[in-house]
């Protein structure tokens, strides 16, 4: 099986290409992205209880538009806002 896979350079090319394009399509540098992430967390955190360790924020280009995708697991509303 590993012999077979080693010869399948198409899959390797495809995977490399996908990773490269994710990086290329990023509009912000990793440090700016982190800064933005911090500010988004700050705002949301003042209203909702969120799980800060499981936040995922991605900028991506699907075929004809650029999107910002944020997955922020919510535990509940902040006590002060209940």
């Amino acid at each position: 099986m590993s012999w077979f896979r080693r010869n399948d350079t198409e899959s390797i090319a495809k995977e490399r290409l996908k990773l490269i394009l994710v990086q290329d399509r990023a509009l912000l540098s990793p440090s700016l992205l982190n800064e933005m992430k911090g500010k988004i967390i700050e705002v949301i955190n003042s209203y909702l209880e969120i799980n800060q360790n499981e936040i995922e924020i991605k900028i991506g280009r699907e075929s004809h538009r650029t999107t910002l995708e944020a997955i922020i697991p919510v535990k509940g509303v902040k006590k002060s806002h209940r």
Partner: peptide, 19 residues
């Protein structure tokens, strides 16, 4: 080469570029 899985398939390229 594509058949031997040694070259990117045309569908891979179309998918990635979305054209």
């Amino acid at each position: 080469l594509v058949k031997k899985r040694k070259m990117l398939d045309k569908n891979d390229i179309v998918d990635v570029l979305g054209l």
